[in-house]
Design a binder for these strands. Structure first.
Lengths: 214, 214
DNA sequence: TAGATTGTTAATCGATTAACAATC
DNA sequence: TAGATTGTTAATCGATTAACAATC
């Protein structure tokens, strides 16, 4: 089974490999990928082993094979339909983002609680009322929801989503959700990301500071 | 020194603690925080130890002390001015996002390469031309840049940023950047986040699939 | 062939978890 | 006092890194 850290590096490999393919290259070595992505060659070989693709000594790995193996391992070879809940600033940006197709992800409907937004078109999608959500999910057998609602309503929104059959949630709301263990959740949290940047910045440029007088 | 995994959990603690403070609570136990966030009490105690705040047996930790210690440890107590580069869908959403103030982060200027966007107002900020960027960074002594430009220009944009004095980059472009080691980088990568969701989803609902015929 | 590169097995490193004494 | 909770030290777990034989 492929580890989560390896899974997290797959998209970076994929982007680079696709670029090489476009440039007409056919083979690439772990050494080369490592240098390009700031990793160690050993780690790249381990990650490549995870894809199931075998390399050739002296030559490296076949780019085309790696690309399809990574896509397959991520499950990005079968298109997935998802709904997006929340048509605010962030939700709107997500609705308009055209890069999801690269992951086999298709946002097929957009919902918002604000009646004033109902009927508006955002990124080719017409905003639907929350009341229509349940029937839509059931009718189209949707199992993934992208959640970009305000933090204070996020929990009730996901509770409802789970009730009506959603099995995976990609959470963009700045809120830690409580969900049953059988529901898959992944969050994209700006605060967490910025916290890491802040901490690294302080370490590099400001040194240790004592935050508690004792 | 506080570990990165601990740093990553700090924003979650902070959100919860602020909520409790608002509800008028003064003390909270590691056991309680753990249950609420789906962590183990031992891990929470380790994390709390990192803040420097000491708890009281039987009572727990003083909420107010934890809040200020976490904020201090993240460096969020001193306001930081940053520029935002790229006023597309995502850049626009980031420019309009008002939650950055919680992290002490203030987007003070917005730049875009598209001449058609110059002069437009996005989230209280007027879009400036890339040509104005260097003088702005130097004049206002900016050290952090939020990058939300298309992937194909991301590397040249950050190269330029580093040249003119930027010391930390929060990268939203779907591209792995090559930067000198003294520059701090953190990325928020939708592809990585979705890759983890996809992998978890497959594991939970589809089981192992062999991606390479052998 | 020589040498670059792969793949595997073992060692290291760091974070999480467990165990338990200290404390209010 | 009794018992819940903290804080520390040790054990475990998992990922990264190192070492090295196999290979084209």
């Amino acid at each position: 089974m492929i580890s989560i850290p390896t899974i997290k590096r797959f998209p970076s490999y994929l982007r680079l490999l696709r670029q090489y393919k476009e440039e007409g290259k056919h083979w690439v070595s772990a050494t080369h990928l490592a240098k390009e992505l700031g990793l160690t060659p050993i780690q790249v070989r381990k990650d490549m082993a995870g894809t199931g693709v075998e390399g050739k000594p002296k030559v490296g790995f076949e780019i085309e094979s790696l690309i399809s193996a990574i896509i397959c391992n991520l499950g990005w070879d079968t298109p997935t339909n998802a709904i997006l809940v929340g048509a605010g600033h962030l939700g709107g940006a997500l609705a308009r983002y055209d890069g999801f197709a690269t992951y086999g992800l298709h946002i097929v409907a957009l919902f918002d609680a604000d009646p004033a937004k109902k009927g508006l078109t955002v990124g080719n999608k017409v905003v639907k009322a929350m009341e229509e959500m349940e029937s839509y999910i059931k009718k189209h057998a949707i199992s993934i929801a992208v959640v970009a609602v305000p933090a204070d309503v996020a929990q009730e929104v996901v509770d409802h989503l789970v009730e009506v059959g959603i099995k995976a949630i990609w959470n963009f709301a700045p809120k830690d959700l409580r969900l049953p263990p059988e529901v898959v959740v992944e969050r994209t949290d700006l605060a967490t990301s910025f916290a890491v940047l802040s901490a690294k910045f302080r370490r590099t440029f400001e040194g240790d500071i004592d935050c508690v007088e004792r």
